[in-house]
Design a protein around this nucleic acid. Sequence first.
DNA 1: GTGAAAGCGCTAACAA
DNA 2: TTGTTAGCGCTTTCAC
Lengths: 358, 358
Amino acid sequence: MTIEQRAPGEFSPASIFDVADRAGVSPSTVSRALRGLPNVAPATRERVARAAHELFYVASPAASGLASGRTTTVGIVVPFLSRWFFMRVVQGAEEVIRAAGYDVLLHNLGDAAGRERFFDRLPLNRKVDGIVLVDVTVQPHEQARLQALGVPVTVVGGDALGVGAVGIDDAAGVRMAVRHLVHLGHRDIGMLGGDAATGLNFAVPGRRRTTFLGAIAEAGLVTKPEWVVSSDWGIEGGARATERLLSSRRVPTALFAESDEVAFGALRTLRLAGLDVPRRMSVIGFDDHEMASVVNLTTVAQPVDAQGAAAARLLIHAMLGHADPFARLALPTQLVIRGSTAPPSGAGGSRRSPAVTH
Amino acid sequence: MTIEQRAPGEFSPASIFDVADRAGVSPSTVSRALRGLPNVAPATRERVARAAHELFYVASPAASGLASGRTTTVGIVVPFLSRWFFMRVVQGAEEVIRAAGYDVLLHNLGDAAGRERFFDRLPLNRKVDGIVLVDVTVQPHEQARLQALGVPVTVVGGDALGVGAVGIDDAAGVRMAVRHLVHLGHRDIGMLGGDAATGLNFAVPGRRRTTFLGAIAEAGLVTKPEWVVSSDWGIEGGARATERLLSSRRVPTALFAESDEVAFGALRTLRLAGLDVPRRMSVIGFDDHEMASVVNLTTVAQPVDAQGAAAARLLIHAMLGHADPFARLALPTQLVIRGSTAPPSGAGGSRRSPAVTH
DNA sequence: GTGAAAGCGCTAACAA
DNA sequence: TTGTTAGCGCTTTCAC
């Protein structure tokens, strides 16, 4: 920007030389003093700090980045922005990252094409010192690309080899849900999944379905193929999946939804179909979304912010060179019983007050 | 990073000189060719492109940033990350920003201290070419600080002078809600607000309350101070506000909630208090949150992604030097009638099927 | 504890 | 249309 183009009030920011002049030291000393490096006399440091403050001096990130090779920025990569889970993970990670003095570069994959572009073109190349990858199962060839970035990576809720990972014990959570239904007396249990058609191949969906089928078998039950139905993740997906399931000749007495958002969609469809929950149909979700208490949904709670925060901490350790970059962490899940599950209508047993929408 | 520290497979990325050598041209030609500048022979451009591709060359953002003064990054600043509205705005803006070739630096204010720090220290200084500010009312002294950044700013849903702004006609939306209740026959109408205690001074809360009181007066009604209650924004805030309101000697027959999330909290409290919605209490929200259809909430819909997208477009125009940086845009709102509003129990009139929670 | 000097990898005048 | 030449504003050896 040449001087003529500048707006009247605008003035070019102070450089490290300006600060050096004002403090009566050399630029290198300014640099050292301001970054808190050792080998700076307290009095000098003080003088430099004051000069910098008076001139509103802040080091140019581009210049120091170019000189040092560090960006003081970390990338957070999510499949979508609109899902509650991702947002909360981002929130948890953001807080830790900012507290550690880094900025957050947010990258939204969006769809399958976006995912491919991400691994192919590596748009975060040289822009970040580390990456938190949320809920993406990294394929082997993708992992190679990631390595080419030359920065540490941690993963939340995804499978990945050779990088730090934090998540929950998904299998334990799913089993918890199935057992709860079984203990209530249900023998006909369906499952509503996400997964289909997004092409983003994110980590969770497949895993939960496999475990569900295993848990059903463990309980000595069988489920029907028409009772295990996938659709897009989210409320609308859950609604559509439930519609499809309800079109079977015989329907189950209980539904396990892969996420609370899918469960919410199910609740809406069941209400519109006039099927009382939990009298005619029990529904259990997964997440403990903040809306779960509003719609009185029984669910498997997982700590979401905490997973983001843990991944960020892992990453920061890795960027600092300490810490095992291959660490894996599994946070606990917990059953939260509310009003959307009850014994099947045929059975005796205690009754819970029904779930209501508002 | 010295050569010894490098991991085995890692190799230093190609520089613009490497590409120049391989293509048999000078670095400046490489630069021009790769950035699509005019005055490059098609054949040359082609040769350069191939060389760059073969060497996996990508320009160092720090170096080109330092040389050009541009960052190809835009900052999005939000008060919180955990609120649905903000997320959707970010989503809408992100898409436009990325499509225009910029990266997104996400900055979360978090709380009052974070807000102050933001305007005081300007952490986005020289890191972005423009800023989208979400739902922040910019105070005059803050505006001066923003100007010091020397980059264009646009605001979503906030008041701000001298910068582009997009939002909705809040007043029209609020009046729509109040009139709907009045037409149903309600005369005792309360309001649940956010606002209190966050200290973040974000834009919307105060505005909606003022308009609400105006609309009540317009309708020739009166409301009581105990019926207009504020709490933290969000579900828990709405729940607490409703509890407080219900402790009045006489309660209204209808509630206008400042946001759907506040309304959700209200619905939960009303359910727990055994007050049937809409029979004993009508509730109307604001936003058309995706959960509104699940809990059957009547609400005033506003386009959220679209506001973020519009703000991003405004910003990009401003960064490119075209476009009026003072443009203001108001997107339309729309009443969405669902099952949470009905005539008050005393009155006659048509009945709607009740809202249900799950 | 401090300073001098040499880059970091690009872009942008200017010249050719 | 292309090449040459200076920087952009820091950090970082290496001397002192």
